[in-house]
């Protein structure tokens, strides 16, 4: 397994820090389109986590067993 593919999996840990460390976002301000920070911040994590998982998907080295897994 190459160096890149090994470290890229760390990206999967980022949403845990961003969404589970509650003091980070337990505020009303700044508001956005009328949404208090608490709400728009967490909603914003949805596209961010999708992007992070997509990066991991794209950069991971296919494991030797992928052949056995059948084609997508």
């Amino acid at each position: 397994m190459g160096l890149v593919s090994r470290w890229v999996y760390l990206l999967l840990a980022v949403p845990f820090v961003g969404t589970l460390w509650v003091p980070l976002y337990d505020h009303v301000r700044p508001t956005f389109l009328g949404f208090p920070f608490f709400y728009w911040y967490q909603l914003a994590w949805v596209p961010v986590s999708v992007a992070l998982t997509a990066i991991v998907y794209a950069l991971r080295n296919p494991s030797p067993s992928d052949k056995l897994e059948g084609d997508a």
Binding site: T19, L68, E69
Partner: peptide, 28 residues
């Protein structure tokens, strides 16, 4: 009640890691 959102955000990185493994062994 908004915990449903972080709940369904952090679930998928875990699914990404473990479920393909479970699928593969189950298929084999």
């Amino acid at each position: 009640g908004f915990f449903a959102l972080p709940y369904t955000i952090v679930m998928y990185p875990i699914m990404f890691l473990i479920m393909p493994k479970l699928w593969t062994v189950a298929r084999e």
